[in-house]
Amino acid sequence: MILKSPAISRVLLVRPGATEFDDQGRIKGSMDMPMSETGRRQAETLADQISHFRCRTIHTAPCESARETAEMLAEGRGAKVKVIEAFRNLDHGLWHGKLIDELKRNHPKLYRRGQESPWDICPPGGESIGDAQVRVVKAVRKLLKKNHDELITIVIPDPMAWIVQNLLSGETLSNLWKAETDSAKWDLIEPIMD
């Protein structure tokens, strides 16, 4: 699925600073965790890197690391922070807290599917990437429509950021496991137009 914007807009998609689970290579998913010391330093660097972008509102996922990052980005910019519940991260069910290397070692076929075609993977007690996409599409469409002529800033952790980036740019999803531990980076996206 590709989201098409009704007018020209740009999206600044920001991954929050790392948590302890990110630092350890663990699957965090929808667990609510603060940033680690590394994550706080990363968020400070992010704030410097994107300081030249002007935004009125920073839309953020409800998790603590995303909210902390959004607050750091908003500081001194006159921007407000708005939590969007639909941006909560992918629910990895029973995989929460597991090392990615542990999944690779104990479930090599599943790990390979996560690299090659992650759409239909659904952890026990969790949600599939397809279900997460359905959940986030409405919120992203609403932001594009409401803010069609200004920069839209979103702070959202991976793998949900990875899903949103795919929706906006039309990129093919691949390698769920790399996306699981990406943090403290940003992309400027011009959504594909009608």
Rank of each mutant, 00 (worst) to 15 (best):
R112A: 13
S65W: 00
C63I: 03
E75Y: 12
P62G: 06
P108E: 01
V83W: 05
D48R: 05
N89V: 00
P118N: 07
I58T: 02
R112S: 08
M35H: 06
G93L: 10
A43M: 00
D48S: 13
H107W: 13
C55N: 06
L99R: 09
E44M: 06
H96E: 11
A70F: 12
A70Y: 05
A66W: 10
L46A: 04
A43K: 07
A47M: 05
H52I: 08
P34N: 08
W119L: 15
R67S: 05
E64Q: 14
K109F: 11
L46G: 08
R77P: 01
S36F: 03
E44H: 08
R67C: 13
A79R: 04
T45D: 11
R88E: 10
L110W: 11
I100K: 04
A43Y: 00
E85A: 15
H52C: 07
G93Y: 08
K82P: 00
L46K: 00
R77A: 11
Y111A: 05
K80S: 15
R77I: 07
R54Y: 13
E75S: 15
R77L: 09
H52P: 00
E75L: 14
M72Y: 05
E71P: 01
R40S: 11
E102F: 14
F87Y: 12
E37A: 15
Q42R: 08
R40Y: 09
R105Q: 14
P34V: 08
N106S: 14
T69I: 07
C55V: 10
L46S: 03
L73I: 08
Q49G: 06
N89F: 05
E71N: 09
H52S: 14
R112D: 04
R40G: 07
V83K: 02
K104C: 12
Y111E: 08
Y111N: 05
G76Q: 04
S117P: 01
E75G: 13
A74H: 05
E75D: 14
H96L: 05
I58D: 04
R77F: 06
T60Q: 02
H96C: 10
A79G: 09
T69K: 10
Q42D: 14
K98I: 01
F53K: 10
A61D: 00
P108S: 03
P118A: 00
R54H: 15
S36K: 10
E85H: 11
T60D: 02
P108T: 04
F87H: 02
G97Y: 07
E68S: 14
D48P: 05
I50N: 08
G97V: 07
K109L: 14
E68I: 04
K104P: 06
C55D: 10
R56Q: 15
